[in-house]
Design a protein around this nucleic acid. Structure first.
Length: 697
DNA sequence: GTAGGGTTAG
């Protein structure tokens, strides 16, 4: 009966039964009883009960029974109490090879390689089990060559030895070697089983080698092993990982034994292939969901840029009373960062603190990034400095975020601080060069670029070049920028040329602008921004004929200018505005406010800069168009619907235009309100008539 | 009747 309880993982029940046995003095508790009970404690890591039993064993004088002693050593070992196990081992008058191996198990479990090696070398009688344990331990510690050496030196190898070395390869990323060893094993006439199957299938999945996976699948069907649930799951995962959704689906459909892992694998596999709707269907129809299911679906939405769905599903999850863990919150916070949902983000930050969740490196970095992307620099830095450990990406988030928010000096200071703790990587330099770009720090940028190559041996990638081209171009060094493009070892991408085109526009270089603009349009006829830039270059020079030509080109090729859209959150509700939009329910109040804004701005000397207006229309009409830009509508609404001292926070999908930038500066002065605009590239913090970007954007 | 191998899901 005791054994029955233990076999059904009911150690507590076995202990209860044992205690009632103790009360019935006529029942004989002997040296056969304790091993069963101690084993039960080992299986459930019930250290407390185990110690109690140890006491009884001593009282009854069974500590001379090698069988009982071995079970105690093993129990202490798997409960992680290696020193207790060792004391047992050292003090026991009776030991056999099982005692040595049980002790070795403790060292394997705690990853103590040196102690294990010592023990292994001192063993009076090693057997296959001892050597297999050592291979496993060495594999876990990444000491592949030692494991391999041990394996090769073994006189007698069994299925477990082969499996141990295969999984050692697999866990250390040596997938080819793992598969080769399976073939060896097969040729050596060693039978294979479902345990080794799982390991090699994982290797196939990591190699994206679906053909090898298929033949292993076939092999296991032939030997009749296909119906183990773990093997099913490993197969499903392998097919999904290799992108063979149909094969996975087929296995899933005929699967006689599916569990949560099968469902969760299917969901995440479909998401990895971008099949969101199918994944959602599986999620909605699965018999039960655990945290991993929610997490897979939520993070899937985030990774596929479906941020509103991320937030909606997170809301559903809370509605069902399920408590999120750190991993899920990372996805949700990242979605908040993308859509600029500051209120939601703050709520999660508070939730983390209230529930005592651990702000690990990833969570802290994501929070820092979220606050930065919502323009809340101080909150971001508070999270950053509050983190217990910071990784490269944490530093990168801080550097990038500060730069994006116009605090370039502080950003470069953090970079200096970072160098004392970790070695910067290529992303760090994208951030640092980006910081220089935001401030037009040409010399500094050149120096950092040099240092990156010479001091840190980082090969510049296309992003680094893009930053430099932009930096030089914006500073008016158009020739240098073009030369740099010509010197790039890789083919410049559209963004790089686009940066130079933007610079031509900014510095009114019509000749170069026309040359590059025409090239870009030819290269990417469907891209709206290049047409608009080139057209604006012509417009600013009064070349209306060319403007018209570009417009016709756009119409011919069905290029539609992406409409500017501004979003503002008021009392937890997001409001969106398009240019000239009259659909908002409070449009009358907004228009009155626009009038008021216009009057006050005129007094402060505001002159609409109409040179960027695409259309060839008269000045008055241009002014009206300008004053209906989406960001101005959003600001007007912000002035009505929100109150100081909270800043008016706006997110725009495109870059803010010259006129709106000038107007926003004056509005911040005229209405004494801080305005924070996040555009496509960076933040603008408007305060007392000036902007944090110092006119570089 | 005690000791050794695996993995798959975020």
């Amino acid at each position: 009966m005791l054994r029955a309880f233990v076999q059904r993982n009911q150690a507590q029940d076995s202990i209860l039964l044992y205690k009632s046995m103790l009360k019935k003095s006529f029942l004989c508790i002997d040296n056969y009883t304790y091993p069963i009970l101690i084993q039960g404690c080992a299986v459930e890591f019930a250290e407390f009960e185990g110690r109690e039993l140890h006491d009884h064993v001593v009282k009854m004088g069974y500590d001379f029974d090698v069988y009982v002693v071995n079970n105690l050593i093993y129990m202490y070992s798997v409960c992680g109490k290696v020193s207790d196990a060792r004391r047992m081992f050292d003090e026991s008058p009776v030991l056999d090879s099982v005692s040595w191996n049980s002790m070795l198990a403790g060292y394997v479990l705690t990853g103590s390689v040196e102690e294990a090696k010592l023990m292994y070398n001192q063993m009076p009688k090693k057997n296959v089990i001892s050597s297999n344990s050592m291979i496993v331990l060495l594999g876990k510690k990444g000491r592949v060559s030692e494991a391999c050496q041990l394996f090769n030196g073994m006189e007698e190898k069994d299925l477990v030895s082969w499996t141990a070395l295969i999984s050692c390869y697999e866990q250390n990323g040596m997938y080819e070697e793992a598969l080769d060893l399976l073939v060896d094993m097969y040729h050596n006439g060693v039978k294979v089983d479902e345990v080794v199957a799982v390991s090699v299938l994982s290797a196939c999945a990591n190699l994206l080698n679906v053909r090898m996976g298929e033949s292993i699948h076939g092999l296991f069907i032939r030997i009749g092993l296909e119906s183990y649930v773990n093997l099913q799951n490993a197969l499903i995962y392998m097919y999904l990982r290799c992108g063979d959704v149909l094969a996975a689906q087929k296995l899933f459909d005929i699967g006689f034994c599916l569990d949560l892992i099968s469902w969760n694998s299917m969901i995440s596999g479909h998401l990895k292939c971008g099949l969101v709707e199918k994944a959602r269907e599986l999620f909605d129809t699965m018999p039960e969901r655990d945290l991993v299911s929610w997490s897979a679906m939520i993070s899937g939405y985030t990774q596929l840029d479906r941020y509103p769905e991320t937030l909606a599903l997170f809301y559903d999850m809370q509605h069902e009373g399920i408590e999120p863990d750190e991993t899920i919150l990372v996805s949700v916070i990242s979605a908040c960062a993308h859509v600029g949902a500051l209120e939601q983000g703050k709520w999660i930050d508070a939730y983390i603190q209230k529930n005592g969740l651990k702000v690990n490196m990833i969570l802290g970095t994501t929070l820092t990034d979220m606050y930065m992307k919502c323009g809340c620099v101080e909150n971001a830095m508070q999270v950053f400095y509050g983190m217990e450990e910071r990784g490269i990406s944490s530093w990168n988030a801080a550097i990038l975020g500060l730069a994006m928010n116009g605090q370039v000096e502080r950003s470069l200071e953090i970079f200096e601080e970072m160098k004392k703790c970790v070695v910067p990587n290529e992303i760090t330099f994208v951030a640092v060069l980006g910081a220089c770009r935001h401030m037009g720090l040409v010399e500094e940028g050149r120096q950092y670029f040099d240092a990156m190559v010479k001091e840190y041996n980082i090969e510049p990638n296309i992003k680094h070049y893009g930053c430099m081209v932009d930096l030089l171009g914006r500073a008016g060094l158009l020739k240098d920028a073009e030369e740099l493009i010509d010197s790039m070892p890789m083919t410049p991408d559209v963004a790089t040329w686009g940066a130079l085109l933007g610079a031509c526009k900014k510095h009114g270089d019509k000749e170069m602008g026309e040359r590059i603009g025409r090239k870009l349009i030819e290269f990417q006829p469907e891209h709206d921004g290049f047409h608009v830039l080139l057209s604006n270059i012509y417009a600013s020079k009064g070349n209306w004929a060319n403007v018209l030509e570009i417009r016709e080109m756009m119409m011919r090729q069905d290029v539609v200018k992406i409409p500017g859209c501004s979003m503002i959150e008021a009392n937890g509700v997001a409001h969106e505005f398009l240019a000239g939009d009259r659909s908002h329910p409070r449009i009358n109040e907004i228009e009155d406010m626009l009038e008021d804004m216009f009057t006050r701005l005129k007094i402060l000397g505001y002159a609409p800069s109409t040179d960027e207006v695409l259309l060839d229309i008269d000045e008055e009409e241009k002014e009206t168009n300008l004053f209906r830009h989406s960001e101005k509508l959003a600001i007007a609404f912000g002035l009505i619907a929100t109150s100081p001292p909270a800043p008016i926070r706006i997110i725009k999908n495109l870059r803010i235009c010259n006129d709106c930038h000038a107007a926003a500066k004056l509005i911040s002065k005229a209405f004494d309100r801080e305005i924070v605009v996040r555009d496509r590239h960076r933040f603008h913090h408007f305060k007392h008539g000036s902007c944090s970007c110092m006119e570089y954007w």
